[in-house]
């Protein structure tokens, strides 16, 4: 195990959980990023502004953290070739919409309420995530 940071991970995770709870308390919605952001592409009157506001808040989150005196973590892109990034982005975009959720909607919100669909989707993306990294780092790399 390398660079294990359980305390900051748990603290960050709890803040993510808290924002999911606030989204339910205030807006009555699941805090699923792919669903909220994906809905921006098919605008419905009265159902657009809150989505854009959430997305802009998400983009501004790290900047707000810095403004509050926090320090950004190191950010590295182990895969930085345009082809790799484009393949990854297309698969994440299409896959999360096809599967009806991502790490937040299925992995946090859905798992927390033991939704069968979310448990299956989370199992599926964890499995292929582990498998893909194994193939890229330990099979293809020799």
């Amino acid at each position: 195990m390398e660079n294990f940071t359980p305390f900051s991970a748990l603290a960050g995770g709890c803040l993510i959980g808290l924002s999911a709870v606030l989204m339910m308390l205030l807006n009555g919605r699941i805090a699923g990023v792919s669903g909220i952001a994906g809905g921006l592409l098919t605008p419905v009157a009265g159902d657009w502004g809150w989505r854009l506001a959430f997305v802009l808040g998400l983009i501004g989150g790290p900047l707000a953290y810095m403004a509050l005196g926090g320090q950004l973590p190191d950010i590295q892109f182990p895969v930085s070739s345009p082809a790799g990034l484009i393949a990854a982005g297309l698969a994440v975009g299409f896959g999360t919409r096809l599967g009806g959720g991502c790490t937040s909607g299925h992995g946090v919100c859905g798992v927390s309420r033991l939704s069968p669909r979310s448990l299956v989707a989370t199992g599926a993306f964890m499995f292929t995530g582990f498998a893909t990294v194994f193939v890229i780092r330990h099979v293809m790399a020799g």
């Binding site: 790799g84 599926a124 498998a131």
Partner: peptide, 19 residues
Amino acid sequence: LVIGGGLFGAGWGIGGLCP
């Protein structure tokens, strides 16, 4: 659900980013 989740995981495993 299963194919979408699986495809998402593959993209996550390539780039290390989810939405």
